[in-house]
């Protein structure tokens, strides 16, 4: 059964259409990628799906998350399904983190609310969550405020917050952009493991084709708010149909080539 059904989703800001008739489905264990250039509507799609669009933007069409209509249902119902079912890693970690709260408390919050953990068990779970995202200096990180962490450390705190409660659907919006490639590889393995071991459904938003190829299977390429091409990631890379997808593949190869040339010289 599908966990998330999006059909004909559009997002508008006054007269301008920012997301235009996007449809896709996600079942448990799926790895779905939304890829596309800057401004193509990836983040707005993720926000609309979880009922978190900022004021001033309106969504039409249908979004069903575990049966709940995320566009029409009252806020109370949407919040009730969002927490336990779906978690989102926002694109900009600083906007997701509370600047006035220590990282440890921010991770503890959903663990307490959703998994009902208290006391020592809660402390241990926070520590595990930090270790899972390779923040091994757990005590210091837990005590730090967001501004006392590096960019990549913040991004990992945001990931830890999202996955600590083992959501059934994880929406991750460019979750590894602030990470160097070694840590990135570990986080991608972590996400991969979540899907394989816990049958978590993953919606992975990225502009990075090589990164996408490591974790996702079904891919939707967005451009100007529309899905221009869909299919398994491997065939999109081998036989891109849409000119935009072709440009994406070519640019990925260009940086690969620059690196290889330099390494050879």
């Amino acid at each position: 059964m599908s966990l998330l059904t999006v059909s004909g989703l559009s997002v508008r800001s006054g007269p301008s259409v920012l997301v235009d008739g996007v449809s896709f489905e996600v079942s448990p264990g799926d790895r779905v990628g939304l890829i596309g250039e800057s401004g193509s509507g990836k983040s707005l799609t993720a926000l609309a799906v979880t009922g978190l669009l900022p004021p001033g933007l309106t969504a039409t069409g249908e979004v069903r998350l575990d049966g709940v209509d995320m566009i029409a249902a009252p806020e109370r119902q949407r919040t009730a399904v969002r927490g336990p079912v779906a978690a989102i890693v926002f694109q900009e970690p600083l906007t997701a983190l509370n600047p006035l709260m220590r990282a440890g408390r921010q991770i503890a919050d959903p663990l307490r609310r959703i998994r009902g953990l208290r006391g020592e068990a809660l402390k241990l779970a926070v520590r595990d969550a930090l270790r899972e995202v390779r923040l091994d200096d757990t005590d210091r990180i837990a005590r730090s405020y967001p501004h006392q962490l590096s960019g990549g450390q913040r991004q990992r705190v945001a990931i830890a917050m999202a996955i600590a409660c083992r959501p059934r659907l994880l929406i991750a919006d460019e979750p590894t952009t602030a990470l160097d490639v070694t840590v990135q590889a570990e986080i991608l393995d972590l996400l991969d493991g979540l899907v394989t071991r816990h049958n978590t459904a993953l919606v992975f938003i990225t502009h990075d084709l090589p990164v996408a190829a490591r974790v996702i299977r079904d891919t939707h390429v967005l451009r100007n708010g529309r899905v221009v091409e869909s299919g398994p990631i491997d065939s999109l890379i081998d036989h891109p149909e849409h000119p935009y997808t072709r440009t994406l593949v070519d640019s990925a190869r260009r940086f690969d080539a620059a690196l290889e040339r330099t390494a050879r010289d």
Binding site: L209, P210, A213, I237, A252, D256, A263, R264, D265
Partner: peptide
């Protein structure tokens, strides 16, 4: 020189960095 550091990295971390770069098959 970038070509030196990325071409024949002498430090283990640099080597690990290069090995982890995701590339298209």
């Amino acid at each position: 020189d970038t070509s030196q550091v990325l071409g024949s990295p002498s430090h283990p971390y640099t080597r690990k960095l290069l090995a982890s770069v995701p590339r298209l098959a």
